[in-house]
């Protein structure tokens, strides 16, 4: 009885694993097909679609801008969020829960609404240029990652180590930079990567805040898909998957993926 159940479950497990990965494999396969329209099975083998990416200015500039925005927003979120997390975990703040809720509020409001709200009040309302608003939007996306992942790390970091440093004669600021930061640098890098991925991939907020003069990669692909159905999108997708793989490899080296899992558990990805 037990044996049979186990056997069925194993079969199911492999089936789901296959279903999970098959769509992505399909994307990879179609990126090499030589026909302009994607059909099954693919015919021929070519790399021309990868070359075609470079002839799409939207993809090239989109990649650059998305990259720059993601780096800036992630960096900002870490620089601004880290002091807040430190205060919340170390300084016995009153109503810490309340602050925590405010800092996590970007996950409570649907991203599409955040995009619309930012567009309406900052771009239309007070006529801010798109770029700073876009970075603001992505900063908001990143803050919760900093708050959650860093809170988890600092709660694990023994506070008496800091006390030992103070007693050794290092001021609180010096202790923060010489003792705390060196010990949480792996987590900070993992957080940076998570923020980067999330910002780089974001669509709902980006959608409202890009424009003819400001092209972002995910929305550029989205636009391209409205008008074309050729393997160029497959090729871009493969590039994006390679990027994801690279980021995951980096994080695994930082041993930070456990934190990532914890965080994603608490937040549905959109």
């Amino acid at each position: 009885m037990r044996q049979k159940k186990h056997w069925l479950l194993t079969l199911y497990g492999y089936l789901m694993l296959l279903l999970l990965l098959l769509p992505l494999v399909l994307v990879v396969v179609t990126s090499f097909g030589s026909q302009a329209a994607i059909t099954f099975p693919i015919k021929g083998f070519t790399l021309k679609w990868y070359a075609n990416i470079l002839s799409q200015p939207d993809f090239v500039t989109g990649f650059k801008t998305s990259f720059a925005v993601a780096v800036t927003a992630s960096f900002l979120a870490i620089v601004i969020g880290t002091p807040a997390v430190y205060a919340l975990t170390r300084r016995g703040i009153h109503h810490a829960n309340w602050f925590q809720t405010v800092f996590l509020s970007p996950t409570l409001i649907p991203e599409i609404v955040i995009g619309f709200a930012l567009f309406q009040s900052l771009v239309i309302g007070i006529k801010l240029p798109l770029m700073p608003v876009l970075i603001t939007g992505h900063f908001l996306l990143s803050v919760p990652y900093v708050i959650r992942m860093l809170t988890a790390r600092l709660l694990l970091f023994d506070q008496t180590i800091e006390e030992a440093s103070w007693l050794s004669g290092a001021s609180k600021i010096k202790t923060f930079f010489r003792v705390v930061i060196p010990n949480i640098s792996g987590t900070l890098l993992a957080i940076f990567i998570m923020c980067f991925i999330n910002s780089f991939n974001n669509i709902p907020i980006t959608l409202f805040l890009n424009g003819p003069s400001l092209t972002m990669l995910p929305t550029a692909i989205l636009n391209y898909l409205q008008n074309n159905y050729d393997p160029t999108v497959s090729a871009v997708s493969v590039i994006l998957m390679l990027l994801t793989g690279l980021m995951m490899w980096l994080m695994e080296r930082m041993n930070g993926l456990t934190h990532v899992n914890e965080h994603l558990n608490q937040k549905g990805q959109k």
Binding site: L20, P23, V27, N201, I203, L222, L240
Partner: peptide
């Protein structure tokens, strides 16, 4: 499992 989770939603839907 994490891999698709971190892959761009456009890519996943395009698939």
């Amino acid at each position: 499992i994490l891999f698709p989770m971190l892959t761009n939603a456009v890519v996943r839907n395009f698939a």
